[in-house]
């Protein structure tokens, strides 16, 4: 029994590690891609149709590849970056590549909802484009950016379960091994409940922060 508990604890740690490590990179890349798309769009701060189209195309392609296939495609890159084919660490590149375009899309939506007049007002005050981005755009879209983070984190939790298929470990993998292969319903249920709890906690924290910072 204690061996099982140990396994569950280890799987939980792996899931949490995969989710939050990849979330960190996803948020960084997602915001960067989002800003790039926002400023290059028509009537943007640095309007540039070519860059906008190319980045948009890449984002759309990555978003349309099912995660289970993307993971296999990314294996060589993962090996190059992490030096390993197996384990939680090796799953991170594919998780980040899958989730970044998703989060970038949400950033764009968040940025486009920022009042154009507010941005115009700051331009009129003599702000540089860089100042407009980090002093106006980001703070004014923060609630939407944060809800995007919790949504992305939740997607990542379910991606980590799939990553089990390429040997990343984690709760999804555990549930699959015990539930499907060994027919051990107890471990299956515990794994499932733990995943549900993780998702609930992420959602709760996200909503709480949004409520606290939204002064509209």
């Amino acid at each position: 029994m204690s061996a099982k508990v140990e396994q569950i604890v280890k799987a939980l740690q792996e899931t949490l590690f995969m989710t939050f490590a990849s979330l960190l990179f996803t948020v960084i890349f997602g915001i960067m891609i989002g800003i790039l798309l926002y400023i290059t769009q028509s009537k943007g701060l640095y309007q540039c149709k070519v860059i906008n189209r190319i980045v948009d195309l890449i984002v759309n392609i990555l978003r349309s590849i099912p995660f289970i296939i993307l993971m296999i495609l990314v294996v060589p890159l993962a090996k190059m970056l992490t030096g390993s084919l197996l384990g939680a660490k090796a799953a991170i590149p594919s998780l980040v590549i899958a989730a970044s375009p998703f989060y970038a899309r949400m950033c764009i939506i968040a940025f486009n909802e920022v009042n154009k007049g507010t941005i115009e007002a700051c331009k009129a005050m003599g702000a540089s484009n860089f100042e407009i981005i980090y002093k106006v755009l980001i703070p004014e879209s923060l609630p939407a950016l944060i809800s995007g983070v919790s949504l992305t984190a939740i997607s990542l939790v379910s991606y980590t379960a799939m990553a089990g298929a390429i040997g990343s470990g984690g709760l999804g993998n555990l549930a699959y091994l015990y539930g499907s292969v060994r027919r051990d319903e107890v471990v299956l249920f515990i794994s499932t409940i733990l995943i549900v709890i993780i998702v609930f906690v992420i959602q709760f924290i996200g909503d709480y922060i949004v409520m606290k910072i939204d002064k509209r």
Binding site: G126, P139, E140
Partner: peptide, 29 residues
């Protein structure tokens, strides 16, 4: 532009900042 102030029909204030911070932003810039 720093020496040309502008006010707007819909005020265009930042909702995420207090009155103090909204005014301070112009000085920060």
């Amino acid at each position: 532009r720093i020496k040309i102030g502008m006010i707007f029909q819909h005020f265009n204030l930042m909702w995420s900042k207090t009155v103090f911070q909204n005014i301070e932003l112009a000085l920060e810039i």
